[in-house]
Every structure is written in structure tokens, then in C-alpha cells.
Design a binder for these strands. Sequence first.
DNA 1: TTATATGCATAATTCACTTATGTATTAATC
DNA 2: GATTAATACATAAGTGAATTATGCATATAA
Lengths: 110, 110
Amino acid sequence: MHSPELLKGTLQTILLKVLKDNGKMYGYEITQRVKELSLGRILLTEGALYPALHKLEADGLLQTETVLMGKRVRKYYTITVTGKSLVKERVLEFREFIKTMSAVLQVQIA
Amino acid sequence: MHSPELLKGTLQTILLKVLKDNGKMYGYEITQRVKELSLGRILLTEGALYPALHKLEADGLLQTETVLMGKRVRKYYTITVTGKSLVKERVLEFREFIKTMSAVLQVQIA
DNA sequence: TTATATGCATAATTCACTTATGTATTAATC
DNA sequence: GATTAATACATAAGTGAATTATGCATATAA
């Protein structure tokens, strides 16, 4: 597991990117996908996940659709057009950040 | 300038690494060096810098020496042995974090 | 002489996160 | 058949590292 400190500020970007790449997903599914992609190193907590999703929805970056699976509720999230354009920026910004940090820490990346 | 969100959690690592690489330095000097290394993209604020330096000193990772330059006070910081071993870990941890994030965001690094 | 740069410091505030708690269904295990 | 783990959502309280604001003081440039 990574130090949670480093994760700060990356959650929105992660959520938007995963939703952009995987289409319609629900919260729990996102946590599993992120866990998988990160080889178990990023475990999203519910207390961070749901408020973040709600905020992204309120900001018009995601839209939702609630579905009843048997007796259980599932809330599916889809990225909006605005969300897609933002995620591009955010990922670019993250790459720039990595470059800058590599220069400051004098480390080789990749 | 980078989104300040991403910087969160990296300040201690930056301070320790810069001090490890450059030997004895004072606060203001560190801000200038980081600005230089980051090509102006990381501008450390005093409100973040000084409390962080004080904490690192309190934790035994840095040690200080106060010098009078004319009428002006300068507080020089040096990294301790404990600090040196920690900075190795932290930089490694940051590299791991980059790898993980690259996998999650599906971006090419370097 | 007035603004900018140098140099340190701390207090109030913000905000994204962690931790804790709550509710409920479904599947696996014993 | 009962209990545990996994699935699925949600919110509230607390934390802590940062930002913003403020304060003090010297040195240099315009």
C-alpha cells in the first residue's frame, strides 16, 4: 500500500480516467478496478470514494443512473463531455508533475 | 505552477532530498533551489516551508545552526544520518507511486 | 523614497482525506 | 441453519498538511 499522503489530490483524476476508459461503472466496481490496475496498491476507501463521486456529479463531470439489481441498489456513473475534456487536462498535468518532481528529486523515471 | 493538490505529501521528501544533495542550506535558499530545479513550477510558500523544517528538526531528521550574517539571522539546516536513511526510502516510495499511478492512469512515463 | 528581495516565524483557516458508523443484500463457509 | 465475508451505498466526526494572512526586520534596486 502506498503512503496515503501521496495519493492526495489524485483521486478525482483516477475516478475520471477509470470511468473514461471503462464506460458505465458503479462505485464498488471502481474500487475493484483501481485495486486491479494498481496491483493492490491503491485501495479506495468508501469514505473518500462516495463523497468524491458526488462532488464530480455536482460539478457536471459525471452523470448517474440508479438501477435495481434484484433487491440491491446500484448507482452507475458515466463521464460527461465536460468530464472527458477535464480528464485530459488532469492526466497531462499529472505527467508534468511527475517530470517536475523527477527533476527536483533527481531520479530517473520509467 | 502545478496544482498544489498534487504537491501534498511531497514536501518533506523534497526538503530532505535537496538538503541531502546540497549540504548545509537555509530556508530561503531551499525555496530558490527548488524553484530552480523545478523550472519555476514549484514555489514553496513560507507558511508551508518553516513549519515543515521545524517538524523535520523535531523528528531528528535535520539539525540546525543559527548564524548572524551582518544583522540578519540565518538558520542553516543539515540532514542527519537518520534523515539520510529516510530520504532514500521516501524517494523509492515516490518512484513506486509513480509506477502505480502510471498503471492506473494508463500513461507512458519518461 | 519607495518598492522589491531577502529572511524568519506563527496563527487562522481550508479542505481532502481517514476513521468510524450506519443500513442492507448476497454469497460462502462451518 | 448460522455466522462470516463480500457486496453496495451513504454520511458524520476528526485529522493534518497545506494555504492564506499577518507580523517583524534588513538589504538592495529603482
